[in-house]
């Protein structure tokens, strides 16, 4: 199963990024093969809808689970359509959060913010 995490740096030791749609990079981690790779987030500088764009990329990579500290309403809608489960990450590194997820220590994210850019949702 493939997990995606927004990260500040291209490293398993990186902290999880505070933003999902505007994170600089995404970490993809395969829980079976334990392989990981990184992608630059093409949505980082978009004029709007960064969360929507970010989910599109994640969904296209066949991700089943997203670990993130927060997520906007529009991104949540796309994630739900893509049948990607959203777990709330805890403060710490990407690796610590992957381990916590595998140990079933993370909870599903349940609150989704309405965006910060003056749109109905972001």
């Amino acid at each position: 199963m493939k997990i995606a995490i927004p990260v500040d740096e291209k490293s398993l030791k990186s902290n999880v990024c505070a933003s999902f749609g505007r994170a600089p990079y995404f970490l993809f981690y395969n829980t079976v093969t334990k392989e990981s790779y990184y992608l630059d987030n093409t949505a980082v500088a978009s004029q709007g809808g960064a969360g929507i764009r970010a989910v599109q990329v994640i969904a296209d990579h066949g991700v089943k689970v997203l670990l993130t500290p927060r997520c906007g309403e529009n991104a949540e809608k796309v994630l739900s359509n893509a049948e990607v489960l959203i777990y709330k990450s805890t403060p710490g590194t990407a690796q610590e959060n992957i381990d916590a997820f595998i140990d079933e220590q993370l909870n599903l994210l349940s609150d989704f913010h309405a965006g910060f850019h003056g749109h109905g949702g972001n």
Partner: peptide, 25 residues
């Protein structure tokens, strides 16, 4: 359409196009 939209008002998920009315300019 996705490539064209600078505001990311569209997503294509599971063979279905989704439009975000609020994001559309």
């Amino acid at each position: 359409c996705l490539d064209f939209c600078k505001f990311n008002a569209l997503a294509y998920i599971k063979n279905k196009l989704i439009v975000f009315d609020d994001v559309c300019h």
